[in-house]
Amino acid sequence: METVTVRDTLHNSLDIRQAEGDATSMPAKIQAQKTNVHYGDKHALKDVVLDVREGEVTSFIGPSGCGKSTFLRCLNRMNDTIDGCRVSGTVLMDGEDIYDPKIDVVQLRARVGMVFQKPNPFPKSIYDNVAYGPRIHGLAANKDELDEIVLISLEKAGLLAEVKDRMDSPGTGLSGGQQQRLCIARAIAVNPEVILMDEPCSALDPIATAKIEELIDELRENYTIVIVTHSMQQAARVSQRTAFFHLGELIEVGDTEQIFTNPKHKLTQGYITGRFG
């Protein structure tokens, strides 16, 4: 497996990209066109070409340091906040380049929500956590509307039943899984079009993980979801499409079933069968 040359890799992934163009079931929500990321001198992401389709769950898999989280953070420009990080190439969302100087990053992040690896509720009440986004964007005209947004978001995140009696207690007092669902509710409250999830279950126990996975499946109806995961089982369970990254390159992308049963690339096969990673 280690003998695969770079030229092979490029050649193969090019084939896959062309093949992929034919199978259009859903319109592309986000299109990455030759996206490159540099951290200082390090070339972290190389010429990634990838479509994220609307209304689907797309998962990114690959060994640690392969660039999957970096690419995810390109999609809502969270990389802007990192010193020495440069992004080049284009990322189109609904046909518009999100790296265009005319695009306002605050507006973009209202459209593309994010859930992080470690649950990170604000040290505020449960209510204030969910109301945070609507408040900063001025989405609610009055208190009643805000209440409604908060309740609906918690309901959608499957947390309402557990917290409705203690909306004023701190969000940091919930269990890990509840905190993560609170973060999902917080992201939903802004009513985004896309939700990015960066290893949302890596800090959670199996039961909490199962709940989040169930939730992702439900959310798919209304949102386009991109999830980075270390667990191939999770990718197989929740996503319709899977992209495999290796050493900063997108090696293969396709329907999840195809990736896990009939990978076209040797590296992908090696990874999913556990020969490296």
């Binding site: 969270m78 209202a110 470690k118 990170n120 945070y132 964007h137 917080r186 992201a187 802004v190």
Partner: peptide, 11 residues
């Protein structure tokens, strides 16, 4: 993580 949470929500 607090900064990321706020920025991620579009603050």
């Amino acid at each position: 993580s607090i900064r990321e949470a706020a920025l991620g929500l579009g603050a």
